[in-house]
Design a protein around this nucleic acid. Structure first.
Lengths: 356, 356
DNA sequence: AGCTGGGCTGAAAGCGTTTTCCCACGACCC
DNA sequence: GGGTCGTGGGAAAACGCTTTCAGCCCAGCT
């Protein structure tokens, strides 16, 4: 075995990476043979040479240069994921599910937060296109409008052979995966009606978001059918945070102190609803007021009382999105859905008799 | 302008990506000139040619092939981040901070969860090395031992010119960034002592984790100095979750019902402590018992009562880690620290007079 | 014995960039 | 007016890999 290799691995400030050429030389074979052994080609290589190559590669801690590989194979093992904000538990759940699949396929995941900014999202897709990512999952929660630049960029990406899956988006010419938000809203109405509630208030997020619109719509539709009264003025809008929910609840009960149930269109807001009822309004949940959230984020189970809410299978969405992205491209964009499901916990109960 | 370019952009199932060669041809210049214009070279190019190239590039929606670029420049715009679990709020905070810096430098971030598994971590570093990532931040929270394979891999990465920053790790030959956990523990003891507490219990996470050990150590040291009694048997260990904290608290108060203060070594556990005191033990916080957490995760402010806890500047750690990684490599590995800080909220108060 | 064919190996092309090197062209100076 | 320099453009090499293609060797057949 040649000794110049050893010399190079001794003490220099920065050695450049070990190349396949070096492995080949070290094993006494040609570049081609080394490549065949290490890149899992279908060509046979005699056992002895194989061993020599593997041994040399291990000794030098060789890992193949992915960019070089990408260049010749014109495909990478990279996938991109665009989320709203990595700190947001919804984004985190989708990410986690997606990474599970990524690991099975030995793919690396590039994650980028878009903070609900279409321009950021577009820029990010462009950079993923430059990287020749194999697939992109857009899970930054869809806004209505402002997506034509994004659509252009997505088109350029798919044109060069990349696959894109959008979650809860609309207006993109790609496969789209959407939770059945409306079903969840309907289930909430059914649940409240079946408990005997006759009137409910809604604490609502920004109505510009598709997800919010759909949740509300399902709820209102079903409520109407079931005789559950939901007045427009009992539907207060606020920021999609705990504080937003709290403030909204205070406003809501100032207008309608007699309400026996509140539906928060998001779990974070539901937390605020609980806080407001307990700390600001002195109402017991669920004895005086029932509270329902939407999303079923990890803490929903842990708060007191534990939160009745609509479960979104976010990890499943992440898994499914990437699985789809790695499968064959369909002839034309598909609209796919995932089910939502009401999870009844301790924050809902029959209304207090004195109320009605 | 040649028309074969237009033809190619019409309707074929999968067009391969636009290349610089095509842009050059389209602009009527050489490959070299096109490259100089688009890659921000320092060579001058006459204004007219520049315009032609830029116009062609925009028209074709050209983005340069990052792998090809990486090959020739032998550097990429990719950085790797290893966390424990993307769903974990601590990991998320570090990630978020790091991504901020990444965006400023136009870097893409590859995130991988290691789930406290050294082997996974090692494999991940190897794959990032293959990608020729520019830097890696290891923020998967350090375990004691089992890291020699990881160290090897990290060394191979730095040998090929990559930079590595470890957060809360030990035993790696790279710059290490660690919160001053012990200071935080000391501050907790001081706070409790100054409120007049004379004895405290501890709800403790897995003692195998460096972070846990240090937090506890600082607390115990300072407690001893200040005359705050912390008996070994009042130090109960459990899983680092809400449920773990809850169960541990019940055990703790069965042994020592007279305790006026509990220090949970992690906020998630502190939530469990609050739940146990309220729901299982019927104690008021902070009137009957003071509770302190550690970590200051986003919800600490939102629970009731809001949680006094030790703030870890996780986003700052993320930012700083990547900034360090992008800076010059020091002659020898540095040990860097970030401050921790007690945040006093509503879960701590002077002990109830009837107790002492 | 001479040929054929199968099984392996190695030389070389090519992937899309950046960058070096060389050349042409004016301007400038003596 | 001829050399020298500076400026800007293009040809070609190089990056590290995969893969095609040609070549070698030996077994098997006629």
């Amino acid at each position: 075995m040649p000794s110049d290799v050893n010399r190079r691995s001794t003490r220099s400030r920065v050695t450049s990476a070990v190349t396949l050429q070096q492995v080949a030389r070290d094993a006494g074979v040609s570049l081609a043979t080394a490549s065949r052994v290490l890149s899992g080609s279908d060509r046979n290589v005699k056992q002895e040479l194989q061993d020599r190559v593997l041994e040399a590669a291990a000794r030098l801690r060789y890992v193949s240069n992915a960019p070089a590989r990408a260049l010749v194979q014109s495909t990478t093992s990279l996938v991109g994921l665009v989320v709203h904000d990595v700190r947001d538990p919804y984004s985190a759940a989708v990410t986690s599910g997606l990474m599970e699949v990524a690991r099975d396929h030995k793919l690396l995941v590039m994650v980028g937060p878009a903070y609900h900014d279409p321009a950021l999202q577009t820029e990010y897709v462009a950079r993923l296109r430059a990287q020749r990512a194999r697939a992109i999952v857009l899970a930054g929660s869809g806004f209505t409008g402002g997506t034509t630049e994004l659509a252009r960029e997505v088109e350029a990406f798919t044109a060069q052979g990349g696959r894109v899956i959008a979650v809860s988006h609309e207006g993109l010419p790609v496969d789209t995966l959407t939770p059945r938000y409306r079903d969840g809203g309907r289930a909430v109405a059914r649940h409240l009606a079946s408990l005997g509630h006759t009137e409910a208030g809604v604490v609502c997020g920004p109505t510009g978001l598709v997800a919010v619109q759909e949740r509300l719509r399902g709820f209102v539709e079903a409520a109407a059918e079931l005789g559950l009264t939901v007045l427009d003025k009992h539907c207060v809008e606020a920021e999609c945070t705990r504080d937003g929910g709290r403030a909204a609840t205070i406003r809501l009960f100032r207008r309608a102190p007699e309400l026996s149930a509140v539906f928060a269109l998001d779990d974070a807001m539901a937390l605020g609803v609980l806080a407001a009822l307990r700390d600001d309004l002195g109402r017991m949940v669920p004895d005086d007021v029932s509270v329902i959230g939407y999303g079923d984020f990890p803490l929903a189970e842990d708060v007191t009382p534990s939160l009745t809410t609509v479960h979104l299978p976010l990890e499943e969405i992440g898994r499914r999105a990437l699985s789809l992205a790695l499968g064959d491209a369909p002839a034309s964009p598909r609209q796919l859905t995932v089910p939502t499901r009401l999870v009844v916990r301790a924050s809902t109960a029959a209304p207090h008799p004195h109320g009605s």
